[in-house]
């Protein structure tokens, strides 16, 4: 859904730009959601020294720039008087804060372009964070196979958030409720340790999902 919304917004960018209240709302939601994803991806890219994750960070950052431009246009068109203009500054301040976050995330992955041994430092530090980033493989006999993220309600039942899925040679970034899981998928997750252990046990077909849902 996130991707579909993004494409819709991008199409709008090349056409007429009507003032739509709902569109500012959608853009702002999308920008906030993107910051959640882009920071997780940036830490993961740096910790695992993974260029594909870094590439997605760069891609999301350029999308954020486009969304920022869109939201600026729409706010300007919507400001018909002083009071409205003041309110628009609030919207734009929040939007540009999200853009600043994505800039910071992109800067973080620039470290990968430098000839540095990130692996020697970062995973070590991030492994002590409140919420850690891990990779978990889904084994063929797991209860997660064939289920969508929405059906599992994984984050609500375990506190573990799915950031990305690697399936054979391709990636699904920021998977949504309709994303179905397959055997041998590699999940990149973020969450508290006890929840991570639960998800790993189910993914490795050691315990049924029903043991997690109680």
């Amino acid at each position: 859904m996130r991707r579909a919304r993004l494409e819709k917004e991008l199409k709008e960018e090349h056409g007429e730009i009507p003032y739509e209240q709902t569109s500012v709302r959608e853009l702002l939601t999308l920008m906030k959601d993107t910051t959640e994803l882009i920071t997780d991806l940036a830490y993961a890219a740096a910790a695992f020294e993974n260029d594909e994750l870094a590439e997605e960070v760069r891609h999301l950052e350029s999308e954020m720039d486009k969304m920022m431009y869109q939201i600026r246009l729409k706010c300007m068109l919507g400001a018909r008087n002083m009071e409205a203009a003041e309110q628009m500054t609030g919207i734009l301040q929040v939007a540009s804060a999200t853009e600043k976050i994505s800039d910071a995330a992109e800067d973080m992955v620039k470290l990968l372009d430098m000839d540095l041994e990130l692996r020697a430092i970062l995973p070590h530090i991030l492994s002590e964070a409140d919420e850690k980033i891990h990779t978990i493989a889904i084994y063929p006999g797991s209860d997660m196979v064939g289920k969508t993220i929405g059906q599992l309600m994984m984050e609500s039942y375990t506190g573990v958030r799915l950031i990305a899925v690697r399936r054979q040679n391709r990636w699904i970034f920021g998977p949504d409720a309709n994303t179905k899981l397959f055997p041998n998928d590699l999940m990149i997750v973020r969450g508290v340790e006890s929840g991570y252990r639960e998800v790993r046990e189910v993914a490795h077909a050691e315990i049924p999902w029903s043991e997690v849902v109680h």
Partner: peptide, 8 residues
């Protein structure tokens, strides 16, 4: 373990 049990 509120975060693990409820995602909150």
């Amino acid at each position: 373990k509120l975060a693990t049990e409820t995602g909150v």
